[in-house]
Each structure stands twice: as structure tokens, then as C-alpha cells.
């Protein structure tokens, strides 16, 4: 449920078109939305900020239609998710989502070959290897700490599907972490 001060800002932004109230909402949520896009774009900060900006503009345009049936954050994540889907759909003219993500990371990494013990590099690469749905579920569940019920509302996937995406993604990422933890212990 949205907090009282948040409800006031939402009402002011929706009814009066008050940009300052919307600015306060952005102050509260911009880190989370930018972090969502940062993981979805595999660390491309410029692109993730652009997408976050598009998501906030769409939220501003649609805030009058926000019926408070879910929390504001869930509604905002839903907008972020559709913004990401639109971005992928436009990028898909040339490449698939997984190609885009993996090629971004691999491309960025080709300039300087990583050391074998660079845990962040390999974790980032493992994230890039997740398919779009798995990465979305992992991002929303582990990074944004949303419940499976909220993820269902945001993505429209069934709970069982979300759990299986999480399970597959988790195994993949854990394997990378386990490898580096073992290496560190040796």
C-alpha cells in the first residue's frame, strides 16, 4: 500500500498536474527504477538512465489514470517493464534480446580481456546469459526485492512460471558465485 505522503504527491500530480509533487515521487523511486534498467541493460548506465527517463515521462502522462489498485511502486515497475519490452521490441528488428544483452556485455569487454579471477565480470556475463524473462524475474525478485505476487502483476507471468524462471536463473548465477567462492577459499 502507498504511504500517506506518497498518496498526497500522487493526488497532486494526478489532479493538479503538479510537477514538484511528481519530482518528490521521482526522488523516492528513481534509484530503484534506474537500478532495474541498469541490470536489464547489463550495466549500460547511459541507456538505463534514458530508459528510466522514458518510464518516468510515461508515468507522468498516465498518473491521472492510476487507480491505486496496486501500490505506486508496483504500478511504476509495470511501466518500467513495458518500457523495457518496447525497447527490446524496437531493438529486435536487428537482434534478439539475448543477443543484444550478451553482445553489449561481450562487446564492452572485448576491449580489455578480463582476468580469470574477476568475479564481477563473470557475474555480469552470467546475468547477460540469462534470457529476458529470467533476467526480469531475477532483477525484480533479488535486486528490487519484490514478492512473486507483485512480479505477477508487473510482468503478467503466472506464479509457477515466475518460480521456474527464478529457479533457472538462480542456478545459473549461483554456479558462478560458487566457483568464485571456492576459488577464494583455496
Amino acid at each position: 500500500m502507498s504511504r500517506p505522503d506518497e498518496l498526497l504527491w500522487i493526488s497532486q500530480a494526478a489532479l493538479l498536474g503538479d510537477k514538484r509533487a511528481f519530482g518528490r515521487l521521482m526522488q523516492r523511486y528513481h534509484q530503484r527504477v534506474r537500478r532495474y534498467f541498469l541490470m536489464m541493460t547489463n550495466g549500460d548506465r547511459a541507456l538505463s538512465d534514458d530508459l528510466a527517463q522514458i518510464a518516468f515521462i510515461r508515468a507522468w502522462q498516465g498518473i491521472a489514470g492510476f487507480k491505486m489498485l496496486s501500490s505506486f511502486s508496483t504500478w511504476l515497475y509495470r511501466i518500467a517493464y513495458t518500457t523495457w519490452c518496447n525497447h527490446v521490441a524496437s531493438a529486435k528488428c536487428h537482434l534478439s534480446l539475448d543477443d543484444v544483452s550478451v553482445s553489449n556485455v561481450v562487446g564492452a569487454m572485448c576491449d580489455e580481456p578480463p582476468p580469470d579471477d574477476d568475479r564481477d565480470f563473470h557475474l555480469r556475463r552470467a546475468v547477460a546469459e540469462l534470457d529476458g524473462a529470467e533476467r526480469n524475474c531475477i532483477t525484480l525478485y533479488y535486486l528490487e526485492e519484490l514478492s512473486i505476487r507483485d512480479i505477477e502483476k508487473i510482468t503478467g507471468y503466472k506464479q509457477g512460471t515466475i518460480k521456474s524462471h527464478l529457479s533457472r536463473g538462480r542456478e545459473h548465477l549461483r554456479a558462478v558465485l560458487k566457483k568464485y567462492n571456492t576459488d577464494e577459499n583455496q
Partner: peptide, 22 residues
């Protein structure tokens, strides 16, 4: 896993981003 991802995709508070978007 949560901690590793949070460390990897850390985002700082950025008032300039809010201003630009506004």
C-alpha cells in the same frame, strides 16, 4: 546472491537525473 547483485548494480542518488527528467 542479493548482495552480489546489489553491489554489482549499485545506483547512487542523483538529483541531476530528477531535474533533467522534470
Amino acid at each position: 546472491l542479493k548482495k552480489s547483485l546489489a553491489d554489482l548494480y549499485r545506483v547512487e542518488k542523483d538529483d541531476a537525473f530528477v531535474e533533467r527528467t522534470l
